[in-house]
């Protein structure tokens, strides 16, 4: 492979099209979800272990910061979920034309943000 190709990788100058933006957010959200795995397992453990740990979990969740964090992770999950479904559909050779791909990536953003906002308001 020719390693001396000209490169244009100035991150401040690159303007990502929406499907690429959804794609990089799929990575970022996946990484965040991986990092949150111990927290997820710990929460599951505390929710099941005893009525005391269940109640203390409820109590901890009352804190605004933990609510904010939870809503943020909820968005990460919803984005990863919706973008993942989009890739599954694209793998079936559906929606692969440029206009359709742009429209579906817009829907991924709309649906994940809206659901995160609705659930966020409900949980607050």
């Amino acid at each position: 492979m020719n390693k001396n190709r000209p490169k244009h990788l100035d991150l401040r100058l690159i303007k990502l099209p929406l499907p690429a933006f959804v794609s990089i957010l799929h990575r970022v959200s996946g990484l965040l979800l991986f990092l949150a795995l111990p927290l997820l397992l710990w929460t599951l453990q505390y929710s099941l272990r005893s009525i005391e740990t269940f109640t203390s979990l409820r109590w901890m969740f009352q804190h605004p910061l933990s609510k904010l964090f939870f809503i943020f992770m909820l968005w990460a999950f919803l984005h990863h979920f919706c973008a993942g479904l989009r890739y599954l559909v694209i793998d079936l050779d559906r929606g692969i034309r440029l206009a359709q791909a742009r429209a579906s990536s817009r829907w991924v953003m709309i649906v994940s943000l809206t659901l995160a906002a609705l659930l966020g308001v409900r949980l607050w």
Binding site: L41, Q45, L48
Partner: peptide, 20 residues
């Protein structure tokens, strides 16, 4: 590190689900 963490999570999951 990622593999070891994930194997530990798997062991932890069994403990959570059958140790409750």
């Amino acid at each position: 590190l990622v593999i070891l963490a994930l194997i530990l999570y798997a062991i932890w999951s069994v403990q959570i689900l059958w140790g409750m």
